[in-house]
Write a protein that binds this DNA or RNA. Structure first.
Lengths: 316, 316
DNA sequence: CCTTGACATGAAACCCATTTCACATTTTAC
DNA sequence: GTAAAATGTGAAATGGGTTTCATGTCAAGG
């Protein structure tokens, strides 16, 4: 492969001039520009990106840390990030951690190695204390709200959204309300959920709280569990529309009509919910992803709240 | 940020030695190795990845060209690619084209720019003629079978799988069989589908072929269309389990029982199919992705056929 | 005692671009 | 008519590593 020096020599100009042509600088005479472009074409030359990155000190690449790469929520976030990145001529690399701490640190090191300009963390395994130091090497944007000034945030007000969802159920007269979550661990999100629950309904009944739900089958299993309880809940707030769909389908199979016998609220406005008419809390994760990407590109560590919305259909 | 020369100077050794320590070469005395590591720690040094890539002439990065980034099939492929890439210490960048030819070529140029070591094409907008030249700069692996020797393939025998699916329906006594596809265009996949259909059922009835289906709602719409035809099909082969699920749900809503009144076969073994008991042709796209990634890493332009399997549930 | 191979180290070339600075020539402005 | 601004060009420094080659020491083998 030819390099910029070869081009310069053959075109009878300096490498500086070739570089200027390459980068569309002004102050290059038309004849030299033409000559250079001709030679570039003849030799089928293309500049070496690593060399460019090395001199520029940036790569226009953004990392996206996700725990799993086959999860609807993270797909929506990725979708948003990609939208904005493509538009702004950035490139996205996907970094799945499986919540492995070492892996996560290894990925964060890519900032220090100058392989990435910025990093978006959708869900993390490490404590912030372990993550913060890496913000010296590139902007880190989080999907969890954090007050640390160095970290940008593109977040949703989960607590309010949960409060709204529960209130909606309470307004419809429900007092026996169950809910599901995905992760076993005590994440912030789960904390908010439980706090909001207590805020609206007073006491928290352990049997009404199921965890480890993420797909339609988990929803079916959850419904199988909840709907045969002696004190059957009359409403369920699921952590996703797939789960909600499973609950809906199982309920129907044992002749419980929605919303007459069982109210269901899902989350994230996923395809399945449309067909089944499931009311959902849409946290607009695509927008969250777009916003996160935008913060990185503009090197802004602002805290941006993305509004959620409740899409009312027929399951409440 | 410190660089390798700073480390060398402070440790009282040559840059060569520092490089050796960094890359775990043998033939470095323990005391120098220790000294270098100490200084690296003190200065919080990390090697610059762009510089490494520049000298090595490779980046250990793989591009994944997909048309859309919110599609279940491509998610499965991505999933497989990521599995293998993480395992082999490669990095994946996601390149959504929206079937835009220029965008696709722009992405392929990343091979020429030495930004990527290899490229996986899941679906393409350009003709092979426009793509082939880029294989000079890095291995290209395709998810479509192509006979061109330069291109590696991790593909599925779609034709056989369609033949099998239609035969399964024919064996159950179905003669009025409809089917759906995603893209409007005349892709190879659609060609195979129609050929297989004719092979099994003889004549092809245009009203039984619906296109533009990709999600649950599309399935519902398709069913709404097909199931009120004067000559109602008794079986439908859908292009995905989401679509199949939509068909299933709509059929149920107009009191058509599955499989008594309507047989349904889906594709890709997606979560929704499990719950609804939909028989599916699992093309094992995750494995296809893994295999494609492996070809790239081993720089092999072999043609590897990944076996599909039909998962029988209760919808046929 | 001499040869060989393993161990240890560094100088310098190389990978490939961008950018600063210096200098020369034209235009434009007053 | 002259000072200032715009235009055009290239040498050389810079970014930060890897690798080849040359050289030297030391211990084992014959």
């Amino acid at each position: 492969m030819a390099n910029i020096h070869d081009i310069a020599k053959l075109a009878g100009v300096s490498v500086t001039t070739v570089s200027r042509v390459l980068n569309n600088h002004k102050y290059v005479s038309d004849d030299k520009r033409t000559k250079v472009l001709t030679i570039i074409n003849e030799l089928n030359y293309a500049p070496n990106q690593s060399a460019i990155d090395l001199t520029r000190g940036e790569t226009k690449m953004i990392g996206l840390i996700i725990p799993y790469n086959n999860n609807a929520c993270f797909d929506q976030l990725l979708n948003g990030v990609l939208n904005k990145a493509v538009e702004m001529d950035y490139t996205v690399i996907v970094l799945p951690t499986q919540y492995n701490k070492e892996k996560e640190i290894e990925y964060l090191s890519k900032l220090k190695n100058k392989q990435l300009d910025g990093m978006i963390i959708t869900s993390r395994a490490n404590d912030w204390d372990a993550i913060i130091p890496y913000s010296d090497y590139g902007l880190i944007v989080s999907y969890d709200y954090t007050s640390h000034p160095a970290i940008g945030c593109s977040y949703i007000d989960r607590y309010s959204s949960y409060l709204d969802a529960f209130q909606l159920l309470k307004d419809k007269g429900h007092t026996h309300v169950a809910f599901t979550t995905a992760r076993e661990t005590e994440s912030m999100s789960t904390q908010h959920l439980i706090t909001a629950y207590k805020e609206v309904f007073g006491t928290f009944i352990p049997e009404y709280y199921l965890t480890g739900c993420s797909c339609l089958d988990d929803g079916i299993a959850a419904a199988k569990n909840l709907l045969h309880l002696p004190n059957r809940p009359t409403a369920i707030f699921a952590n996703g529309d797939e789960v909600a769909g499973g609950i809906h389908l199982y309920a129907k199979s044992i002749n419980l009509e929605t919303p007459r016998d069982l109210a269901i609220i899902g989350q994230e406005n996923q395809p399945i919910g449309v067909g089944l008419g499931i009311t959902t809390v849409d946290h607009q994760l695509t927008k969250v992803g777009e916003q996160a990407c935008e913060l990185i590109i503009h090197k802004s560590n602002q805290k941006v709240k993305v509004p959620y919305q409740i899409i009312q259909r027929t399951s409440v």
